[in-house]
Nucleic acid binder design. Structure first.
Lengths: 361, 361
DNA sequence: TACATAAGACGAAACGTTTCGGCCTGCTTC
DNA sequence: GAAGCAGGCCGAAACGTTTCGTCTTATGTA
């Protein structure tokens, strides 16, 4: 409808130059008090708001940070939100979120838009960053960017902050061993993509702990798992494994969802959880608390991750050019009934369990 | 570091004008095929990306929509996300989200930033819009905006899409009455702000249904509720009400959280739910499914709301100037065990319950 | 009187993109 | 051989803000 209220419009109405209007509104140069008052009155009257686009174009500073995530409603991301907002707010930044819907192409588009929208820095919570490695590298030349939860090995040239899945799985397995488990298995997903570094990391931690205790580790999966998975990890179907008479008293699942599934399978074989088998999951989903039995799980310190990532990002935005940093934080073992010490028959050393931390509720 | 790659830079390298570069890249004017190829090669080489800020400044068209919400992780908002993303994607828009942390001042700031960032339209999911009514009205003159879940009465000058809480409460209460309840109460929150229009709407629907059936409606609250609340609604503490010997066989709570609380209080008085009292909540929280007993609840059709709101917003963005529209959708009654017909002693007509819709899981 | 100083205001350029209109050149057409 | 046309390219302005340097005028000082 009417002309948008710009500095120019105000200048015309006040009979001064845009420079003077600008100075008057922002108290920059030397402006006569009367002039300033007049200009401000007109600005208020016209409900003037600065055009951030123009400002960003000129200034290359917008006070805005962008967060790109594959999925806005994934629980892990949810847990980061309060910290992200809090730190941004403290430092005077506003945060804008965009979802890539876990689509590499869309992720690139969204990043381009954010970059072009005057964002000063990007937090990238992408599940499959390798698809876009070249793109990200190119972006990084122009825009600070911190990655969240990435596979460390491939990402040495980026800042990233994430969970130490190896250490987490190691701790979970060690806890089971300490509690008296002697025959431990790792439970795989149905399918494993090349991007599922977390599966490998968790398996690795598990295997390390078993080895350190002089125990072997079985790698199991659902009977419905992709044959390729079975082959790649030399895994066996859980039910077949038990039918063959192999003992099993401890299980670490690649995530909570899988733990639920594994527990179902164990039960179908007549095993009690807890009692016969102690089970631990990963990710500490909400449902794990209310599962029957409540499921022990490795919980990623997303709050801490968000905090460190934001601080790092803001440092970068402020101009810090030091080499890329990788921060890995160990997850926390949440002990619930599912991993209660196996029955005395199987485990003579019960009661000696020493969890890293216990968390109620 | 290096100069940002702009059309101008490419133009210099290619030895042509920026106009030609632009035409070459976007296939606009008439450009010699050889020139075009050369320009494109250089652009690719330099990893050129258009600057959205500049483009938006020039074009006033950015393909971006903004969503402002008080809280990004509120379940109601969560349920809207997939639809928002889906429709935006279908129509070729990208969506950016920002949180106001339920702070009126921050909400205004965020809106200003989004407005200035070239967003073409805004979806506003604000709990307390009245604080910012003037501001929103001013914004609306320059930027299409659709409100979600607002009190209809005060918002006639805005587009909005929301839940018909009156109808919902009416339906819930009617269902209880049809099922044989004869003494129904509405359960209030501990505190009621002037913005809590939903409390009033839900109470109104409840009262209407009771009246239509020739029944009176008790208004109750927790003993710990703010005295001002009790007074404003002529409410009584639930426990006191029962102690005084008043009969009660049906209860509608202002939301699920309150239903949990009310059920606790009823039980502390020795009443069984279900059995003695049939209870219904509002909002259909996740926890309501797993509550004991699983809680019946009014579920807002957030998916539909998101869909209609986005379609309306995109219509506005496209230039539709028709008068503001208000869309109210009735919630869906999810029947679970908590509202099972009261015991035969109280209700001779059991079995005649006719729920609007039953939803498993 | 001449000069320095400060207040108050402004012109113009820049950020990067898009677009309108125009300028050449070479070719076709009558 | 002149008019017309199309192909190929470009200049310049515009979006709204910020900033540098400059210009004018009034005041104070030598």
């Amino acid at each position: 409808m009417g002309r948008t209220t710009s500095l120019k419009l105000i200048a015309e109405m006040a009979g001064v130059s845009t420079t003077t209007v600008h100075d008057a509104l922002y108290g920059r140069g030397r402006v006569n008090a009367a002039t300033q008052a007049r200009v401000r009155a007109i600005a208020k009257e016209l409900n003037y708001r600065p055009n951030t686009v123009a400002r960003a174009l000129r200034l290359k500073r917008s006070g805005m940070l962008g967060v790109v995530t594959g999925n806005l409603f994934t629980p892990l991301f949810q847990r980061m939100l309060p910290q992200i907002e809090k730190i941004a707010h403290e430092r005077g930044y506003h945060v804008f979120y965009a979802s890539s819907n876990s689509d590499g192409k869309r992720e690139r588009e969204v990043i381009e838009l954010l970059r072009g929208s005057g964002m000063e820095g990007l937090l990238l919570f992408s599940i499959a960053p390798r698809d876009n490695l070249d793109h990200h590298t190119a972006i990084l030349r122009e825009l600070p960017m911190v990655l969240i939860e990435q596979p460390s090995a491939a990402m040495r040239s980026f800042d990233f902050v994430g969970t130490d899945n190896v250490a987490g799985a190691f701790a979970a397995t060690s806890a089971l061993l300490t509690a008296g488990c002697r025959h431990i298995a790792f439970y795989l997903p149905l399918v494993v993509h090349s991007e599922d570094w977390w599966v490998r990391d968790r398996l690795e931690g598990c295997a390390k702990a078993a080895k350190a205790a002089g125990r072997s580790l079985a790698v199991l999966a659902s009977p419905t798992a992709d044959p390729e998975v079975m082959q790649r990890y030399s895994a066996l179907p859980l039910t077949a494994y038990l039918s063959a008479g192999h003992p099993l008293d401890g299980l670490v699942a690649a995530n909570d969802e899988l733990a639920f599934q594994a527990i179902d399978e164990l039960r179908s074989k007549g095993l009690r959880i807890p009692g016969d088998v102690a089970a631990v999951g990963c990710d500490d989903m909400d449902a794990s608390r209310t599962f029957s039995p409540p499921l022990s799980s490795m919980r990623q310190p997303m709050e801490r991750i968000a905090e460190v990532a934001m601080q790092l990002l803001i440092r970068r935005v402020a101009g810090d050019q030091s080499p890329p940093e990788q921060h890995l934080f160990p997850p926390e073992l949440i002990v619930r009934p599912s991993s209660t010490t196996p029955s005395p028959a199987d485990s003579p050393s019960r009661g000696r369990r020493k969890p890293e931390m216990v968390r109620s509720k």
